[in-house]
Structure formats: C-alpha cells, structure tokens
Design a protein around this nucleic acid. Structure first.
Lengths: 202, 202
DNA sequence: TATAATTTACTTACCGTTTAGTAAGCAAGG
DNA sequence: CCTTGCTTACTAAACGGTAAGTAAATTATA
C-alpha cells in the first residue's frame, strides 16, 4: 500500500484551507501543522504561497475544461447546452473546494487568477460560444451575449452552493408560509437548465 | 459651504478600499493616510475594523431594500419582476463599490455578513417571493425555488460587473470571429430580464 | 563491495514586515 | 475646566519567507 506523498498531503490541506478561508486567511503554518510537518517543508515543495495556490487550482480548471469538451460536442444545440450546464453543475457538486475557490475568483474579478487557469476557462467558454452559435444558425436560439449566458450558468450554480448558510439565515426572517422543502442541488441544475434553455429559444 | 465631516471621509475611503481590495487586504493605516489623518483617529470614530465595515455596507443594503420595496409593489407580476431586476441592476451600476463588496460576501457564503444586512437582504427576497407567488397564483409563472431566481438575477448581475477584466483576458484566448461589441450594462439588464421572465412563463 | 560524495526531504531558529489595536497626551472650543 | 477630536508613540501577534543544519537515502567511485 502506497503512502500518499507529503506533497500530495500539502496540496490536499491547502485546497481545504484556500476553499474554506480564502487566499489571504490561509496561513501556511496552519497547513503545515495539519500535515504534521513544518512550514519550511512547504517551501521545499513549492516556491511560495502563490505557487501553492496555483498548484491547487490549475488541475481543477483543466479537469473541468476537459469534461466540458468531452461532453458537449454531440447532439443538437439544446442537448449540448443541457449537457454543458449539467456537466458544469455536477463538477461543482463533486468538487466543493473548487466551487468555493472559483466563486471567490469571480467575485475578485479574477485579478489573482493564474493565466493558465484563464486559458483553461477559455476552453469551456469557447465550447459555449460554439453551442450558442450553432443554435443561432439553426434558428433554435436567439442571439445572446455568450458571457451573459456563461454568468447565468456558472455564477448561479456556484453561488447557490456557497450561499447555503445565508439562505438558512434569510429563511428565519422571511417566514415564507408556503415554504417548500429546499430543493437539492441536482434539482437546481435541472431547473436552471430548463429556465435558461426556455429563455434562449426562438 | 459645509465641509464633509472626517467620519464621512473615513467612510468614503473605507468603502473604496473594501470594495477594491476586500476586507482582509484593507489596511486601516492606508485609509487614514487617504483621509490625511492617523490610524487612531479611525478608532475614535469606529470601535474596530469590523464596525467600520458594518458602517460601510449596512446603509447600502438598507437603501437597496427600500428601493426594491418602493418599486415592485404595483402592476402585474411580469411588470413587477421586470422592475425588481431593473432596480437591482441599476442599483449595482450606480453603486459599484456595493456591487464588489456584495459579490465577495456571496462568494464567502456571507459568513461575515452582519445580521443587520441579512435582515435587509431578506426584505428584498420577501418582495421577490411575493412577486413569484402572485405570478404563480395568476397562472403567469411556473412554480420555482425563489432563491434560485434570486441567484440568477443577483449573482449574474454582480458577477457580470466584477468580471470585466476576466472577460477581456478570455477574449484574447477565444478569438471569437463573430465577436460582437461588448454590450453595455443596461443592455445586459434588459437581456437578463427578458430571459428570466421568458423562462418563468407558463 | 566498501566507502565517499551528493542529493532528498526535511527541521530548528530566525528575520522583517505588516497590521490591528491601545495608552497617553494635547490643542481648541464651549 | 472639561469635552471633542484628534496625534505620537507604542505593543503584540501573525505571517511570509530564509539561512543553516541534518539524518537518511541514493549514486558514484576506488
């Protein structure tokens, strides 16, 4: 049985902390402690804090880009857009740490996002543009700004995940008599998908 | 001519910095410098950093709640929802500092958001719930989770604002031959409004 | 094959800087 | 003379990062 390497362990705990606390509030000393090593050991494996952050997030951006490309090439524009939303949404559920980090990057204007990640993100948007263009040519979809659609999909999903505690607090104030059970996240993906596609149809 | 008080000046520069740099990266010393005072002068007016932050954002949450309430009571559900989106969107354009701070709060799960702000935010959501319920009763709208609709509206708009630099970077990679001119933000509000309402119609 | 040299993967100890926050003093105005 | 609205000077802690050393594993050499 293969022991996970120290480097992998550092990446694991770094991901947890960046996701939970954000970049600024992540202390390398704390990560080291969780790995049962000392801080300079982190500097042995990574040049600095920024490099560690990069090492944490870049593979996830690459993974999502790959999954999107693999799953949104076939079918008619509606099916492809459904898949785009579904794949993105399910990736976010399966990778809550990525969800949290991505949400913060967007809120930050991505000023600190490594170029490598921007490039990977561009691949997914390229795919979305292709879907929207095809749908438009086929007179299935109306012409819309692709970035707007991207925001409607991605930020709605990420923020729905990050705001669960907020929703609970708000519920106390709202006292919605007709409160329905909080829909689970898979339902949210479906509901969002239906609404966006309906909104786009000619 | 009335000189703006030092307290107002502190609030102004604090708002700028919290908005631009976020809570953690805002240094009180820097704010003091911009106000031509010293750091302890800030502590004369505000208990601590958290209190200053609260003083910056709470009035804005109150203002948006008020505006929403004033402008979404009249008309049929479609008109009211149109107004809800328009008022929210225009508030975000007119208050870019609020936009940036709000976006970060959402991405953070609002764990640091003062209860007072949560309460004000609840007022706007109450209004949205009322609109959606009325639309549902009138068989105008399908039944949808209100928080999802809120996220589709609010996070799409805030993030469209915060991600302008990101969009520019992505454009370099995407090389969209059919690139249309970046729509201005008022067009974005309209486009979003149309799409959401279309998606909600029975 | 024994041994010397080198590299790997860390640790201990420390530095410099930043930053929130405080104690005490002081000048001006009522 | 006392309150308001600050300033000067300071503390304590946190944090990113580095220098130097070391035990163990690996490789080169005699």
């Amino acid at each position: 049985m293969q022991k996970t390497s120290k480097k992998e362990l550092i990446l694991y705990h770094a991901r947890e902390s960046f996701s939970k606390n954000g970049y600024e509030l992540t202390a390398l000393e704390a990560i080291a402690k969780e790995c049962d090593i000392t801080k300079p050991a982190i500097y042995y494996h990574f040049k600095d804090k920024a490099a560690l952050y990069k090492a944490v997030i870049c593979p996830e951006f690459t993974a999502v880009a790959l999954k999107i490309e693999e799953n949104t090439k076939m079918g008619n524009p509606i099916q492809r857009l459904e898949n785009y939303i579904k794949i993105f949404g399910e990736f976010l559920i399966s990778n809550p740490t990525f969800n949290a980090i991505f949400a913060r990057e967007i809120a930050n204007g991505s000023s600190t996002m490594p170029d490598e990640c921007v490039e990977q993100l561009s691949r997914t948007i390229k795919q979305l543009i292709s879907i929207l263009n095809d749908g438009e040519s086929a007179k299935t979809f109306t012409k819309e700004p692709p970035f707007l659609i991207q925001m409607m999909i991605v930020t709605t999903l990420t923020s729905y995940n990050t705001t669960q505690p907020l929703r609970e607090k708000i519920s106390q104030y709202v006292q919605n008599k007709t409160t329905q059970a909080e829909p689970n996240f898979h339902n949210i993906i479906d509901a969002l998908s239906q609404k966006i596609i309906k909104g786009l149809l000619c």
